[in-house]
Amino acid sequence: MTETAFAPRVFSGIKPSGGLTLGNYLGAIKRFVESQNAGTESMFCVVDMHAITVWQDPVELRRATREVAAGYIASGIDPERAILFNQSQVSQHAELGWIFNCVARLGWMNRMTQFKEKAGKNAEKQSLGLYAYPSLMAADILLYHATHVPVGEDQKQHVELTRDIAAKFNHDYGVDFFPLTSPVIDGPATRVMNLRDGTKKMSKSGESDMERINMTDDADTIAKKFKKARTDPAPLPETLEALKDRPEARNLVDIYAALSDTTAETVIAEHGGAGWGQFKPALADLAVERLAPIATEMRRLMDEPAEIDRILGRGAERAREIAAPILSRTYEIVGLIRS
């Protein structure tokens, strides 16, 4: 089996369910923009087929899909420089997903921690789609021979499964057709935590709106949430190591670092010894400066749904141009007749 040189290509996606949060922005979208601006061929998807692994109201799903697209664009994704589309408009995702269902092993799927977390004690009542979610995610990535996937820490296991599926497919058919994709997990705040409980991930579905920053929050709301974020009594320490057992404090430091394009070490060097009455207003001001313009632009875009749909449709056309020959070659390798 000969080695194949795969051209660098980035792919990543966000599920349209529950609204975008600061976690989506810092853990994903901000890094998508950096990838695009670095000149790497980039494809960014609204993964609406993943959303329906649990029931979605159809009207809300369409709205949420447009909102994710608006979030991409408002944050700096240029639909002319990158390919921006929603997954369901490119049928090759589902087709390759089935082939990968036949490559992935049950043992691999049973080790996926995210299914266990989402299903809880009601695993028997969950959809088959939720269980097979990681196999479709592998198809999302490998359909474009993507070499790099910017993801949050919680998605690393899924990209590792994608590598396993690619390696098994290549081995089983004696080819070197799919790349062994690398997850890109770097920088501060790759996993943004809850503003009320620093041991839990910031979630779209959390009980209180005060525990998260929504991408559509206005300036006053952003400032209020950061100023009321839970902290401990001690001031910021002089070293990063001293934050080890202070999850709420570490979370706010990481958020500050990510919003200011610096490191947590630099934040501690600048603010070590400061009390929360000083640091939280500074963080709130920084967050408003960075996020409020994005929220304003998202609201403007959401008032023009036909324009968002046009952008997604054009992106889907461009995506299909890449996907179609890769899927066709996959069918040929597997032995499926294409008359």
Rank of each mutant, 00 (worst) to 15 (best):
G120A: 03
R9V: 13
A82G: 03
G23W: 12
A146R: 12
E321G: 00
I165G: 02
L240H: 03
G198S: 01
G198T: 04
H171G: 08
P305Q: 13
A123T: 01
A139G: 15
F6E: 03
D303I: 12
S127R: 14
A264H: 01
I333N: 00
S88C: 03
W108Y: 08
I255S: 11
E67F: 00
M193F: 09
A269L: 06
K200R: 09
R196M: 06
D176F: 02
E207W: 09
L312M: 15
L20A: 06
F115C: 06
N122Q: 15
N170V: 01
I337H: 13
Y72G: 05
Y331R: 15
G27L: 05
A323S: 06
G335D: 09
R338L: 04
A64Q: 13
M215L: 14
L291N: 13
D164E: 15
L161C: 12
L20M: 12
A229L: 04
R63C: 06
R62C: 09
R163M: 04
D209R: 15
N37G: 00
A138M: 10
I141G: 07
N37T: 02
F6T: 07
K225M: 05
T239E: 06
P183H: 12
R290W: 13
T162I: 06
R62D: 10
V90R: 12
H271M: 11
E95R: 15
D172K: 05
L161S: 13
G97N: 01
Q92P: 04
I333S: 01
F11L: 15
K224W: 09
Q89S: 02
L291D: 13
K244A: 15
L240M: 11
A269F: 10
C102D: 10
D285E: 13
S328V: 01
G272H: 02
L259Y: 04
T330E: 00
V33I: 00
F85M: 04
Q36V: 03
E3A: 15
A167S: 14
F169S: 07
A104T: 08
D261C: 03
T266L: 03
N24K: 10
A104E: 07
A94Y: 07
V47N: 05
V184L: 14
V149S: 02
P183F: 11
A166D: 01
P16E: 01
M193W: 12
V288R: 06
S12T: 12
L161D: 14
K227W: 06
A69C: 14
A139I: 14
K118A: 08
A167C: 07
S205V: 07
R300Y: 09
G71W: 12
